[in-house]
């Protein structure tokens, strides 16, 4: 049934992709230091957090609201292990702290995945949300690890440099991480493991009947999501040079959900598309008075509109456009659009 995409249709995917890659590669030359750091680098690590959700939602059908809590666990673990103001301040080597942060986060992800992986759909969403808020409360209340004020001046590896005065290094690190994660996740989708995950998404009972250990697969997927979220957490701490409970509270959790949904829950690229739209909108509306302090109402309405009008998010819209154009060029023979999206919808 699959229709081989028309050349024009392909060009509509590859063209913008190449432009984006070129612009990003040359970004330190094109943008101010501030814009590079405060908008683009932020969008890259926020996109990483969002893609961990997009991956879980799109490939495995697990819409998780625990990703921000997980990246917080990575960030807090690192911040407590390296030299910093506040927290345990054990003063490990920053790389060691980073590694520990990633490992702890992935470990917690696997453990929590083991518990939550037996729940499906909306149940899973609720459990991960409860998990997320509890992690926030934990760090807000346990003053030995963070306390309300958080951990400041977290030490970072030399290569990160100073994210304010010399933002290009961190930008390229974030870009490299994002690209690597993207390629890895794309590749994963074609491996037997990835295919099994998609099978679990579409029909868990059939997969079980076929002899797959469904809870194990889901647990591993959640652990992988936690690993990706851990990268986002580490980068966010390097970028902020601090972490506090406020970095992982419910509004932040919802921000990442909004980013993933605006970009499109069913395509990995959507995470970064959503992130760039979010950070640009945020930066832009801060300066103008018509929106004033009511940014959240605006973003809430945009979010509502996207959910109501375009469940595939911006990537879904782009898909419709390319399909439309492709059909025009290819004549009438066409398949139903958004096949991937259709099957990806967990309900």
């Amino acid at each position: 049934m699959t229709r081989s995409p028309h050349l024009v249709e392909r060009a509509l995917w590859w063209g913008p992709g190449i432009v984006v890659v070129l612009v990003l590669a040359a970004a330190p030359l094109l943008f101010t230091d501030f814009y590079l750091s405060a908008v683009l680098t932020k969008a890259l690590w926020l996109g990483l957090a969002a893609v961990s959700l997009t991956f879980l939602a799109g490939y495995v059908g697990m819409v998780s609201l625990g990703q921000v809590a997980l990246y917080g666990i990575a960030g807090f673990t690192m911040a407590n292990l390296v030299e910093a103001d506040g927290g345990s301040a054990i003063a490990w080597n920053p790389w060691l702290g980073t590694l520990a942060g990633i490992l702890v986060c992935t470990g917690v992800g696997l453990l929590f995945g083991a518990i939550a992986s037996r729940s499906y759909g909306i149940y899973f969403l609720m459990i991960t949300l409860a998990f997320g808020v509890i992690v926030y409360l934990f760090f807000a209340q346990v003053t030995q690890l963070s306390g309300f004020g958080g951990v400041n001046n977290v030490d970072r590896p030399d290569i990160v440099s100073n994210p304010v005065s010399d933002p290009a290094n961190l930008f390229y690190i974030a870009l490299g991480t994002a690209a690597a994660v993207y390629v890895l996740l794309r590749y994963l989708g074609r491996t037997p493991f990835g295919l099994a995950l998609q099978g679990v998404r579409d029909d868990p009972s059939r997969m079980r009947a076929l002899g797959f250990n469904v809870p194990l697969l889901r647990m591993l997927a959640f652990g992988l999501g936690a690993l990706v979220a851990a990268f986002a957490g580490i980068l966010s701490v390097w970028w902020n040079t601090r972490i506090s409970p406020g970095s992982i509270d419910l509004p932040r959790t919802l921000d990442v959900l909004i980013i993933a949904v605006i970009g499109g829950l069913y395509r990995l690229e959507g995470a970064w598309v959503g992130a760039i739209v979010f950070t640009v909108l945020d930066n832009w509306t801060r300066g103008i008075d018509i929106v004033g302090g009511r940014f959240n109402t605006v973003i809430g309405v945009v979010f509502l509109a996207i959910v109501l009008l375009s469940p595939g998010g911006l990537m879904g819209i782009w898909q419709s456009i390319t399909d439309f154009v492709g059909r025009r060029f290819a004549g009438t023979g066409s398949s139903p659009p958004e096949a991937a999206e259709e099957s990806a919808h967990p309900s």
Partner: peptide, 10 residues
């Protein structure tokens, strides 16, 4: 929004 924002940023 996006275009306007980038313009403002640049």
């Amino acid at each position: 929004f996006l275009v306007a924002g980038i313009a403002a940023g640049c």
